[in-house]
Amino acid sequence: MTISVAMTVNGKPVSGKVEARTLLVQFLREHLGMTGTHVGCDTSQCGACVVHVDGKSVKSCTMLAVQADGANVTTIEGLASSPDKLHPMQEAFRDNHALQCGFCTPGMVMSAIDMVKRHNYQLDEATVRHELEGNLCRCTGYHNIVKAILAAAPAMKAAGV
């Protein structure tokens, strides 16, 4: 079944024709060519595909593209306000060496931003570790990811994002 979808991705209106079975992540990667959002598993656990749909973190491999019809979607490509101005969470990941191969990174960053906002910019290590339950990383051992998120929380507050 072919269906027309239209949504806003990173502030820009986009549309396309998809099959009912097309996942949101497939729409982003294959239809829009936005390959920053990754697919690392087929059981909805690794979190490499996390994006924000209407401001909330969602696993884009576990949502149909048609379910996002009319929604406001933000992906890793939409975070930096300009090529030289990274989002505070992106900055914190870089400053704290919170990424190695980079594959889990987009989902980690998107989950981390959602986490910081839900906790009103107040986090401790145990909370961060628990909140990362849906994101797997095989390179960093999480140590520096946790550090980065803790550092980003006040930076996001200060930047008003």
Binding site: M34, T75, E77, L79, F93, G102, F103
Partner: peptide
């Protein structure tokens, strides 16, 4: 880091 953090890394599937 910059390319990985902005979704502009290029992996085989991309």
């Amino acid at each position: 880091d910059k390319r990985f953090l902005t979704g502009t890394g290029r992996y085989v599937d991309d």
